[in-house]
Structure formats: C-alpha cells, structure tokens
Design a protein around this nucleic acid. Structure first.
Lengths: 261, 261
DNA sequence: CACAAACGAGAGCGGCGCTCTTGCGCCGCC
DNA sequence: GGCGGCGCAAGAGCGCCGCTCTCGTTTGTG
C-alpha cells in the first residue's frame, strides 16, 4: 500500500526522483563521478537547479543513492549469474559468479568505480549501503556453505594467531563455515575485486591481453584457495609445475577448466 | 650537469615546482584528490593562481605529477621492504614486500587512492607513469626469479587455452620465469592490491578486525599461489582446516607465518 | 473552504579551472 | 655596460559549479 498511489503528488515525487537518478547515471557513464553536476542534470531535465535540492539535499546524497543502486545492481547480477549455473558443481558456480561480477563491471565501469574505486575524501558510506554491498559476498558464502555441506572444504591450515579472528569472522557472517574457510573466503572476495579493478582501471594494459581467459583461470584458482576442489581428483597438483630449472614443459595437461562442458 | 645549477632562474623554477607539489600533497592528504584546488595551493603559497599555470599547465598535469611521485614512493617502499629481508627465504621476502606495500598504503591513503583508485573520467595515464608503476611488480618478479633459479616453483597447471597468452606474458616481462608462473604472478599482483584496497577503502569495516594478522596470512597464501613453498616445518598449528566430511589432504604443511620472528 | 506543506523558479554568494593581458625583473648578447 | 627579449607574477574576467534564500504557486487535508 505504501508504495503505490499514495496520491498524485507522491507518485510524481518518486517518478521525478527516478528520472533524476536515471539522468545522473547517464552522465555518470559519460563523464564519470567527478564531473557529475547537479546543474547539468537539472538542465537536462528542464528544471531549475535549485528545484533538484527538493529531492536530494546535496550532490553527495545523489551519489549515495547511485552507490546503493549500483551495489544492488551488481548484487543482482551476481545472483543471476549464480542461478544460471545452479545445477553445476561448486567450482563452476563460483567461477560463474566471478565472471558475472566481471561482466557487470566491464559493462558499467563508472558505476563500478563509484563503489569500488576511491571513496570520496571525507565521505564514509552510510549504513544503508551495507546490506546491498553484501550481496555478492553472500552469494559466494552460499556456494561455500553448500560445498562444505556436500563434500567438505579443503583449506590451508590456520596459523594460531589468526584463529580468534577467524572464529569471530565465521560467527559473524558465515556460521555454517569452518573458521579457516571464512578467512579464505574474505581474502578471495577482496582478491576477486583486485582482479576486476586492475583490469578495469587499466593496470593490465600492456600486461594481460586475453583478459577473458586470464580471468577465468584466475577465478578458478581463487576457487581452489577457498577450498573448492575441481571435479576431477586433485592429487596431480602439487608435484607438477617445474621442479628444477629447465621447466618450460609445464602445463600441457589441461586442468579441466579449459573444457567448456 | 643537467640537474644542478643551470642558473639561478632554473633552480628557482625547480624549487617552486617542488614547493607546489609539496603543498598539493599536503592538501591531498587532508581533503583528497577530488578537492585538490589549484587556487588553494596558490593561496597557501602566497602567489596568484594564474602564476601556478607557469609550472603545471592544468590541474590534471599536477595530478599526474603527483601520481608519478606516488608510484615512485610506493616502489621505493617495496624495494626497501624487500632489501630489509634480503637474506631470508623467498616466502619471507614475498610477504615482506606485501606488507611493505600495505604499510605504505595505510600511511598515505589518499596517495594510494590516487594511483589505485578510480582513474579520473576521460583521463588515461600517460606513458611516463608506466615505469614507476612497474617497480612493485618488478620486485615481486625478482623474488620469483630467484626462487625459481634456486628451488624451482610449484605452480598449478596451465589450461591449454591460456598457454599462448602465458607464453607471451612471460616473454614480455618475465623471461626467466615459466609461463605458468608469469600468469600466477600477475594474478597475485592484482590480488595483493585487492586486499590492500579493500582494507583501505573500508570494505573490511565490519568484516575484518585484526587486519594486520589477516593480511599477513593472506600474503602468505598469495606466496603459495605463485609457487613459493614455505619451509616445511610441522608446527603446532595444523590439521584444523575444516573437519567436515571428506576433508582431503589440505595442501601442504603449515605456512610458518604464525611464528612471531 | 481555508490553511499548511510541498514545490518550482529565480537571483545570488563564494569558489573553481582556466585564459588573456599587462607590466616587471633577470638573462645573455653585442 | 647597455639593451633587447624572455620568463615570470599579477590582475581581471569568463563560464561553470554547489548551495541558499526568497517568493509565488500548487496541492493535499482538516
């Protein structure tokens, strides 16, 4: 009841609010957050710049609204990518989510920069951004939970001095996961956005060319570090690579992630 | 001969240029890059704002100069951290560099944001930023090269479709490394800055509390993913992982980072 | 119907990046 | 040693910005 038809006035307000955000997002995509101008938005919408302050008390508040929307959009993309791979194994689902995040970021670089780039100087994100910001992490945690329930997780040991923190982390947001897995999960979460951010912000420019393939591989490795084991037996892993110097022969055997299946 | 005493005029110019950058860096640390104002810098230096354009043709050029300085400062910090651990094993040297990077970033959050945060809208970094930006990566590559020469590297296999790219990458900037190691290195490089960025930009706010310990552990794990194997020492902290069902094998022995020394 | 709240428009304040023009002082050259 | 020229600082000014205040109008409500 509260959302629809509480009078023409209220509906007009939500419509105008949406139009402002839409136009702002359009300018964001073109010019970037730094050059987003309230006056330009108002101009494009055919209203006085002062009128816009009836809807957003300041430029930063507009930005905050866009940030929340971006988090939600990214979260939805991650969830959609996960659902599209629902039937598959945990590694496949993991990489699907990672690729979903990457795809969203590549399609909306400025919105990605808005939420994972440098935060505005004195600005600290209000609490309202927390839940939408958690959605990607929740999807990843869900994959780990399922995998842990079904097969267990293969994680590295936990150093003694990290154990209390790990226990706290698991209790806080991943009660179904062993502490070591919670730690590995948070690290992988940050590392995922390191990969995406580096690609997006040009750090890979003369370094990585075939970024799609590179990312897929890296995401698969990330799955390993959180304890998800690829369908085929591991075991072959460790002794491999290149003992000694003249290695070069390394690789050859696909690790399974190369097969599309 | 070119650097010193090419006349009083020239020396005054370099001095003023340095003073401008210094003041700009001061304002950067206080307000952030978005609010850095040429007029404010000029005001603080007691000169007319227009005079400042004799030294930097635009605000973006000032920013670019600061970016290059920041890259160099970070690179120097990474090299210093590495040299301080020169005698140690590759894992210790790796984590030392990672912690050096983190320490630098925590001490200069705004300068870090300048180089690894969102790039300015239409702005693409000029070529002159490339060499200083590479210094951290070069240090890490050096560690891998040494480790590969001395003990070999234990990396995961390379999927067939990534092999051409991996060969190209190794040839381009790590000719002494096997292709798989070059790939793992670049991924770890990006992931390192993912960890640092998330901590710095508040993404860990209600997630990770003991960030120092968490980071040290994550950096150690990163060392493993690039094929650096920790000295095998069966310590007390082991066997935790998860105790789920088939908790297979759990990689190799302790990561040794738990010991304080 | 009357009234208060919400609203849109306009003017205006201080600050910004950047440009142009105007004088001045230092440099090298004859 | 005088002098022309160049580098330099300063001021005024343009168009933009975020934001505020005021004022007349619209609109939902008791």
């Amino acid at each position: 009841m509260s959302s629809t038809a509480r009078g023409a006035r209220a509906r007009a307000r939500t419509e105008i609010t949406a139009a402002i955000k839409e136009e702002a997002r359009r300018q964001l995509a073109v010019e970037g957050a730094a050059k987003l101008s309230l006056r330009a938005v108002a101009r494009e919408l055919g209203m006085a710049s002062s009128a816009l302050y009836r809807y957003f008390p300041s430029r930063d508040d507009l930005l905050t609204a866009l940030i929340i929307d971006a988090y939600d959009s990214l979260g939805a993309a991650a969830e959609a990518a996960h659902d599209a791979a629902a039937g598959a194994g945990p590694v496949r689902r993991w990489t699907a989510v990672c690729e979903g995040v990457r795809g969203w970021a590549l399609a909306r670089p400025h919105e990605y920069a808005l939420i994972y780039g440098s935060p505005v100087p004195g600005y600290t994100a209000p609490r309202s951004t927390v839940p939408p910001a958690s959605r990607v992490a929740l999807v990843l945690i869900g994959i780990l939970r399922d995998a842990h329930r079904d097969h267990g997780l293969a994680g590295p040991p936990l150093p003694a001095d990290l154990r209390p923190e790990a226990v706290r982390m698991a209790a806080d947001f991943a009660p179904d996961l062993p502490p070591a897995a919670a730690v590995a999960m948070v690290a992988a979460w940050a590392q995922l956005f390191g990969l995406v951010g580096f690609e997006l912000f040009g750090q890979f420019n003369r370094v990585v060319e075939d970024r799609e393939t590179f990312f897929r591989h890296a995401a698969g490795q990330l799955a390993r570090t959180v304890g998800l084991v690829p369908p085929q037996q591991d075991g072959a892993d460790r002794g491999e690579a290149d003992r000694g110097r003249a290695s070069q022969a390394t690789g050859t055997g696909g690790d399974g992630s190369s097969s599309g299946a």
